[in-house]
Design a protein around this nucleic acid. Structure first.
Lengths: 255, 255
DNA sequence: CGGATGGTTGACACCTATCAAGGCCAGTGG
DNA sequence: CCACTGGCCTTGATAGGTGTCAACCATCCG
């Protein structure tokens, strides 16, 4: 299945990693050792004595759908890693409206901008579905980075990934129609949330219509009409937040 | 004058720094010591023995208007710092069209994504006006970062800045009209390239119309009409690439 | 029941992309 | 000198897309 570049590779962090016996020992003590994203974790390079610091300031937190992980303009209190579920990053504007800027899936880091600039969050993080987030407290995270610069390198590489995605999003907005981008977005979401249903695929949308509209940069009314047009094309069906896609494989140029 | 957030603060790096005698000595040996952006240079933390490595792999290059600094899909060969002029980062698409993604002014770093991912450039860098760029070769840059992690921290902070700007750009695109964003963009460019002319300000646009259109995410024909509408409003005048703005101070809500 | 929320639909004005044509200007070659 | 060309930009016509305002519906909840 073809994916829209501006959303990134949905499976980028879903990797199976083989472990040597030595690595297995290290993983036992490492707080991320149990995590399926261990190999790509920004904390993976932490070893030896520093693991204690990491373990000490490490905390897991379960979030219900709709719950807020951190508020906009709040002080950063650490580095958050999504372990399960789906986190939405949005900004609230002065006029009361808000814009959904990014989705963060398991394996992705959240709140690192505020952490690196040692300041306030410019976005709000909200769990869209039941989620689990692992946190490393700010003070200790700084200490760990001090002791182990390759953690910083991994953080930087996440930044690069995000800049790349932003660029793809800007390019997609300039070169692709809204209808096509909605189709791309839906197929991409289907990769995460979809399940087979006969010859179809089906999912429960984790996003409200207005969040979807934000991701495309259009008004909710326009989104509603885009959905109508997609449905008329016959590839998608919509029943509330249930979405069915008829073709399992759909080229980006097919719509 | 009010600035559009999505373009960043045009004076962010124009700072006057006081120097202690000790700093003055360090600056004499430091290749960036003469640069007016020394205090904020990503290489500023480099000191002592490592300065030799830095100086050794340091090279300056002057570019004419229109000249290419690096090509898209070319291998990264170092970290580039804009010292003078204006660099445009654009991507070329398969269909022959291209999109201007970012402008880099003196003090800004260019090509660091390819450097950090140790791969190819995804954008092309072109000098829009006569420019000077300082380069630190890749191999040595990696060595310097290894020896001095705070350089990496500064690079990461540049990444954060770029992500912030991308976010502001996405928000601006979703909440502001194209006409308003063009006015914002012109005023922002005026800060860099404008000069007083009586009670007006005047500048020679460093960008073609189609580059301007790219920055707004519209077609060139639309840009031409937006310019016409701005001119009709009376705040701007256009004669080819010469732009006059009547009011020195113009609120973002004034258009 | 009343009200809030989330979503859809309609009407309308406006904006934009697209295609086509033409103007302006610098460079080129007769 | 002129004609020609190509790049850059503008303008016009037109169809289609989008924002905005408003009404409406379904659902949930106190």
């Amino acid at each position: 299945m073809a994916f829209p570049d501006w959303l990134g590779d949905p499976h980028a962090l879903r990797l199976i990693h083989r472990k040597t016996p030595m690595q297995k020992t290290a993983m036992k003590q490492h707080p991320c050792g149990q995590c399926s994203f261990y190999a790509d974790s920004v904390w993976q390079p932490v070893a030896d004595g520093t693991v204690c610091v990491l373990s000490h300031s490490f905390s897991r937190r379960d979030l219900d759908a709709g719950q807020i992980l951190f508020e906009q303009d709040s002080e950063n209190c650490g580095v958050f890693c999504v372990s399960k579920g789906l986190i939405a990053l949005r900004t609230h504007h002065a006029d009361g409206s808000s814009t959904l800027l990014r989705l963060a899936y398991p394996g992705e880091i959240v709140g690192f901008r505020a952490f690196l600039r040692n300041g306030q969050h410019r976005t709000e993080a909200q769990a869209l579905i039941a989620s689990r987030v692992c946190t490393v407290a700010r003070r200790d995270a700084h200490q760990i980075i001090q002791a182990n610069p390759s953690v910083l390198a991994r953080l930087a590489s996440r930044c690069i990934k995000e800049i790349d995605q932003n660029h793809e999003r800007i390019i997609a907005a300039a070169t692709t129609s809204n209808k096509q981008r909605l189709a791309d977005l839906l197929l991409w979401l289907m990769e995460h949330h979809g399940e087979p249903a006969g010859d179809h695929f089906r999912m429960h949308l984790p996003l409200s219509r207005s969040d979807l509209a934000d991701l495309l940069g259009v008004q909710p009314e326009t989104l509603s009409r885009l959905i109508g047009r997609l449905e008329k094309d016959g590839l998608f069906s919509f029943i509330g937040r249930m979405v069915l896609v008829r073709a399992q494989r759909m080229a980006r140029t097919a719509v």
